[in-house]
Amino acid sequence: MAIENVNVKVKINGKERCADVEPRTLLVHYIRDDLGLTGTHIGCDTSQCGACSVMVDGEVVKSCTVLAVQADGSEITTVEGLGQVDNLHPIQQSFWEKHGLQCGYCTPGVMIAAVGLLEQNPNPSDEEIREGLEGVICRCTGYQFIVEAVKHAAQLMLESEVQLVGEERSS
């Protein structure tokens, strides 16, 4: 007996989107195949590598291990929602600046994990960054420039916050 499809509605990268999917559809396939946002990748199928990491309601989630129906009604941010080429998020800017990527396949997930880390700890030490990236695997970089990129992003984010506060004060 065929199981009926389910309509899954999300707010993804600020936009309302929906699609009818099989109930067993993984969130990552919903995002990639049904919504066409292919920046999020699949690396291991068993939630070790974190290439599929996205933000769901502000939490970093491995989208290969969540069903799309579980995310119904949630707010999702993927790499496409971080920033565009002419308006990069500090984490994207820093990964570029510090050579935090080589093949770029794990990168979207690593950047999302890093954003999650910086939200919890805006000024992490090298060690805290290394611990904080426990959920992601990169095979290319040996992580050193990823650590530098995350540190640089933290700085950029702190600085921009300081500026924001400054503007508010002056107004």
Binding site: D33, Q84, W96, H99, Y105
Partner: peptide, 21 residues
Amino acid sequence: LKRKEDPKLITGNGYFSDDIK
């Protein structure tokens, strides 16, 4: 120099095999 190939990769605009439809 920072890399020419990065802008597309950091914005989710890479074109990997499974992205082909």
